[in-house]
């Protein structure tokens, strides 16, 4: 008997596994994409010379 011979209900088994694969890869790729987007936004702001609140307040206190 072959490994992938799953009997009369093979469709249901494959559908379940495919659904899990789709949802999990969807989640993972969204997480990676979202992370890249935030990093790009952060880098863009840093390149424009914007610094984080903590560092801004320590040098001039301008935004207090």
């Amino acid at each position: 008997m072959s490994i992938f011979d799953l009997g009369p209900h093979a469709t249901f088994i494959w559908l379940s596994y495919i659904a899990v694969v789709i949802v999990i890869t969807g989640l993972i790729s969204w997480l990676i994409f979202d992370g890249q987007r935030q990093r790009a936004a952060l880098k863009d702001l840093e390149d424009r010379g914007v610094r984080r609140r903590s560092s801004v307040s320590s040098d001039t206190g301008q935004n207090q």
Partner: peptide
């Protein structure tokens, strides 16, 4: 962090 920096900007 991005949001806070935009506000600070």
């Amino acid at each position: 962090r991005v949001k806070a920096m935009r506000v600070a900007d």
